[in-house]
Design a protein around this nucleic acid. Structure first.
Lengths: 156, 156
DNA sequence: TTACCAACGTTGGTGTCACCCATGAATCGA
DNA sequence: TCGATTCATGGGTGACACCAACGTTGGTAA
């Protein structure tokens, strides 16, 4: 018997450590699922955001997803290359690119969303629905420390 | 007003997404703190595990922390280079390296542990102690799907 | 109008982490 | 003895997060 040894108790009890491991597993499951549609995680996230936000600038997209503008440029370029979104200069502000989802994009999104959701179900298979919601709530507050509830903060 | 727009509700509600963002923040905070001792996260984790497991082989170390053997080799080499651990061939099994923490290692570990713990406190500052424990429990079950409680599962 | 500053998209580059394949030495089992 | 396994190590890849700089465009103050 290999006497497993789950010994390193200090590290394994640290939120940062557990977060890293859990995120790695989540990413592996989702990436694996999305790969069947030739899609990567960030690409799917951006495509989904474009669908929700309508014609949107890359900066806005990056802000709402927390993605670096440089990375966003590459992702959008990939999506354009696959015909999943269109990118045209915003007539009102020629600095901006108005990114819009295409028909193909909507179609693809429907499939990748399904795949992504399923992967997330697998990821949280050991949790009850209530626990999953609990986890989501806790994570939200870790990700966004300055957003305890909701109300539009006047500050800042 | 920048009309924030937290719109991409679908993606932002996915455990895999939140996990990724939360892990990124956790890593940033911890790495930043540990950097003040010239230490990186994985190095600290390994050093801490060595301290707990006594003289251990790298394979055992890698198994208990979920680190790739190849990466482990590099990390241990770094720690040896800084004199934080010693690596000597195991007389009983000459394939193995018996990794042991040194005096300097213990000293350094005491400081980096403090730093790491503080960073984790900052990471979970928005959570009550009970919520933090809740989060840890939930994450544990995500990281290790086949370990709901403890008992040795008979299933292969 | 002219300056000046801020925002946008883009390019280039870095560091960390996760993961895979291959190899030689050593051990264990048949 | 032969074969399978384990161990440490090296080579290499892909995904993310992050930073610095630049040219273009918009908005604003002098």
């Amino acid at each position: 018997m290999p006497e497993t040894s789950f010994a390193p108790s200090h590290i394994r009890a640290l939120p940062s450590w557990l977060l890293g491991r859990a995120a790695a597993r989540g990413h592996r499951l989702v990436a694996e699922a999305l790969a069947r549609e030739g899609m990567r995680m960030m690409h799917h996230a951006v495509l989904s955001a474009v669908a929700e936000l309508g014609p949107v600038s890359q900066a806005e997209l990056g802000r709402s997803l927390g993605i670096d503008p440089k990375d966003m440029a590459g992702i959008v370029a990939d999506l354009v290359g696959e015909g999943l979104v269109t990118r045209s200069p915003d007539p009102k502000d020629r600095r901006k690119n108005a990114v819009t989802i295409s028909e193909d994009g909507e179609l693809r999104l429907r499939r990748t969303r399904r795949l992504g959701d399923e992967a997330n179900d697998a990821l949280t298979a050991g949790l009850s629905p209530a626990e999953r919601e609990q986890l989501i709530g806790l994570l939200r507050r870790i990700v966004d420390p300055a957003e305890p509830c909701d109300g539009g903060g006047a500050a800042g």
